[in-house]
Design a protein around this nucleic acid. Structure first.
Length: 255
DNA sequence: ATGGCCATGCACCATGGA
C-alpha cells in the first residue's frame, strides 16, 4: 500500500499539481491525505479526482485549515475531527481503507509559545492522545499522518541552536510526540534512516529551500504491524520545484 | 534592523502560516 500526506496550502491553487503528482507517480498512490485545503466541502473538486480514479472525503473550512482523504479504494467509517474535543477548526479526518485505519491530521500551528494559540495546541494534543490510544487499541493496522507542526528532536531542525525553544521546537510540543511514540506508534521516517537531516517544509522567504533551511514537521506514524511491513519512506522534494509550490512537500510510505 | 513569501478576504492592508 502506498500512502501519502501533503499540506497543499490551498487546494484551489494546488489542484493541478496534486492531480499531476497522482497521475505521474511511478508507484501508484493508494491514499493521499491533504491538509490546509482552505475550501468548504461544497467546493471540493470531487469530479477532478473521480476522473483519475479516486474518491474523496473532506472536512472543509473557508480560508483556513481543512483536511481531505483521496483514495483509490472505498472509504468507510469516516470520523470528522476529534471525538472528545469540540473544535471550531477542521483538522482531522479518519477513515478505514483496505482494513487500515487512517488518521489524517493538521495539528494546530501554535504561533508562539506564549500565545493563546499555543494553549489551544496543547489542549488539542491532549485530546489527540486519548483518540490515538483508542485507535491503537481498536485497530492493528493504523496510520497517523499529516502536518504535525512539531519537530521530534534537533535532527528535524536546520539550525537547532537558532530555533531552540521556538514554535515547533519546544520541549512541551516534542513531549506530545514522545507520548504518541510511547503509545506504540513508530515514526516511519526514523525506521531506516536515523542519522540524516531530512526536511518536509521550508519557509517561502530567504531562499530557504535553495539553502535547505527547513524543518521536518510532516510525519507518518505507523502502528507496529504496519512498521513491520514497511518497505520505503520518501520525501518528495521535487514537488517544491514546481513553479508555484506549497511550502510543504508530500511524504509517502509503501508497506 | 523592521522585513523581504504566499494565500485569503476584503478591498490594498491585515491576518495566519511556521
Amino acid at each position: 500500500m502506498h500512502l501519502a500526506t501533503w499540506n497543499v496550502n490551498s487546494l484551489q491553487i494546488r489542484l493541478s499539481q496534486v492531480l499531476m503528482w497522482l497521475t505521474q507517480s511511478a508507484v501508484p498512490i493508494d491514499v493521499l491525505v491533504l491538509q490546509e485545503i482552505k475550501m468548504v466541502d461544497e467546493k471540493f473538486p470531487h469530479a477532478d479526482f473521480n476522473q483519475i480514479g479516486y474518491q474523496c472525503a473532506s472536512l472543509g473550512q473557508k480560508s483556513y485549515n481543512g483536511v481531505a482523504i483521496i483514495s483509490r479504494h472505498p472509504i468507510t467509517d469516516i470520523q470528522y475531527n476529534l471525538p472528545h474535543y469540540n473544535d471550531a477548526s477542521a483538522r482531522l479526518i479518519s477513515a478505514t481503507i483496505c482494513d487500515v485505519r487512517l488518521l489524517g491530521a493538521y495539528f494546530p500551528n501554535g504561533q508562539s509559545p506564549d500565545s493563546d494559540k499555543f494553549q489551544y495546541k496543547m489542549q488539542w494534543l491532549e485530546s489527540l492522545q486519548a483518540y490515538s490510544q483508542e485507535t491503537l487499541d481498536k485497530y492493528e493496522q493504523a496510520v497517523l499522518l499529516g502536518d504535525f507542526n512539531i519537530t521530534l528532536d534537533d535532527l528535524d531542525v536546520w539550525d537547532p541552536v537558532k530555533l531552540e525553544g521556538a514554535i515547533h521546537c519546544t520541549q512541551e510540543e516534542r513531549a506530545h510526540l514522545h507520548r504518541l511514540l510511547n503509545q506504540g506508534w513508530c515514526d516511519s521516517g526514523r525506521i531506516q534512516d536515523t542519522s540524516a537531516k531530512q526536511f518536509t517544509w521550508w519557509d517561502y522567504r530567504h531562499w530557504a529551500f535553495q539553502k535547505n533551511l527547513g524543518l521536518r514537521i510532516d510525519h507518518i506514524y505507523v502502528s507496529a504491524r504496519v512498521a513491520s511491513q514497511l518497505k520505503s519512506y520518501t520525501i518528495h522534494k521535487a514537488e517544491r520545484k514546481h513553479p508555484r509550490p506549497s511550502d510543504h512537500v508530500p511524504v509517502s510510505i509503501v508497506f
